[in-house]
Design a protein around this nucleic acid. Sequence first.
DNA 1: GAATAGTTTAACTTTATAGTTAAATAGTGA
DNA 2: TCACTATTTAACTATAAAGTTAAACTATTC
Lengths: 211, 211
Amino acid sequence: MMRKAMNRVHQEPETERRILCSAEKVFYRQGYDGARMQEIADEAGINKALLHYYFRSKDRLFDAVFSDAVLRLVPPVFAVMNSDSALMDKVRGFVDAYFSTVSQNPFLPGFVVHEMHRNPSRFSEIIKESRLLMLEGLQHQLDEGAANGELIPMQAEQFILNLLSLCAFPFVAAGAMQSVSGKNDAEYQQLLEERRELIPQWMSRLVECGA
Amino acid sequence: MMRKAMNRVHQEPETERRILCSAEKVFYRQGYDGARMQEIADEAGINKALLHYYFRSKDRLFDAVFSDAVLRLVPPVFAVMNSDSALMDKVRGFVDAYFSTVSQNPFLPGFVVHEMHRNPSRFSEIIKESRLLMLEGLQHQLDEGAANGELIPMQAEQFILNLLSLCAFPFVAAGAMQSVSGKNDAEYQQLLEERRELIPQWMSRLVECGA
DNA sequence: GAATAGTTTAACTTTATAGTTAAATAGTGA
DNA sequence: TCACTATTTAACTATAAAGTTAAACTATTC
C-alpha cells in the first residue's frame, strides 16, 4: 500500500513527474497513435519496465497526459469567461490567459484538437457545467449590447467560435501556416506574439458598432 | 508493362478510384498512424492483396490521398486570391470556394493540418510559387487601402491567418467545438453553414475603417 | 481457346510495439 | 541488519499490423 509517499527512497525523487513531462512531449508532438512507449522512456532517461511500473499501460499514461492538458487549457479560460466583467474585458482576459498557457506549450492546442477528434466524448463532462454558464452570460451581454445599438447582433456560439479560431488556429495549424506564410520558426513565432495585442482589437471591431 | 490502360477486363472498372475513396475516408478520420490497411480494404470491399496490387505500400497509398487532398483544397483558393479582384471580392470568393470544397469533405482540413504537423515539409513545394504572388498582391491592396484611409494597416500574413482561422478552425476542431458549444451534429453543421455568409461581413468589419 | 489482367483466398513472413518477468542492485528508514 | 521501495537489465511473450506469396478463378480480348 501507499505506493509512493513523501518518504522517498534512492535518487530520482520525482520520477513520476519526469515521466509525465516526457510523455507530454511525445504525445503532444505525435499523438496517441504516433507515440511510442520506448520513445517516452528514452526521453525520460529510464527504461520501459519503470514506465510500466509507474503507469500500468499506454492508455493510463495517455489519460494522465490528456487530463493535464485539458485542465491546463480550460479552467483559466472559463474563469475569465464566467467572470462578471464587461464583454471586451472578458475578451482581453481570455486572450491573455490563452496566450500565457499556449506560448509555453505551443503543441497543446493541436494535441487537444486532434485527440478530441479521435474521441469526441472525452472532455464533455469536464466542461458541461461551466459551458452553459459561460454561453448564457455571454449571450446576455451580446443581446444587451445589441439592444443599446452598441454591438451588432451575434450568437454567443459564433462569438466564441471566432475568438477561439483567431487564438487557436495559428497554433493548431502552425505546420501548414508556416508553409503558407513562408516564415521561418522565429518569424512565425513573432507573428503569433503580435496577435496577443491584435486579437482583442479585432474582436472589438468585429462586434462593436461605433468602433 | 502498361499496368492498366483503357482496355479494361472483368468487372470493377474503377477499382483504383474505389480504393482511393476508401483510403480517403479512413485516412481523413484516423490519420496515417491510426489508419489500418485492412480497414481500407474492408471499406473498399476488397482484400489486402488487391490493395497492395494497386498501391505497393501504405506510404504510397497515403501519398496519393494526401496529394489529392492538397490539390482539392489549395488551387481553388489560390485561384481566387491570385486574381485581380478587389480585396473584399477576393474574400467572398475565397470563402465560397473554401466552403464548397470543405462542406463536402468536413474532415479534409483537419487531415491536412494534422499531417502537415507530422511532416511540415510536405506541401511547401506545391504552393511556393503561388504563395509569393498571393502575399504580394494582398499586401499591395492592404497598403493601398490604408493609404486611402479606407482600411486599417495590416500585414498580409495576419490577414490571411485571420481569414483561414475563421474558415478552417470550426471544421478542424469540430470535435472539441461541439463540446464547447453544446450542439449536436445537425445544429453544429447549421452553425457552420451560417458562417459562409457571416465571415465575409466580419472580415470587412475587421479591416474597413468606415464599415 | 489461349493469353492476359483483374481478383480472390488463405496461409504465410516479418517487423514493430506493448507489455511481462525475474533477477540483481542500491539507497532508506526502522 | 532487515525490510522496503525504486531502479536497472535483458530477455521474454503476445499481438497486431504490414507486406508477401502462390494457387486458383474469371472475364475479356485476340
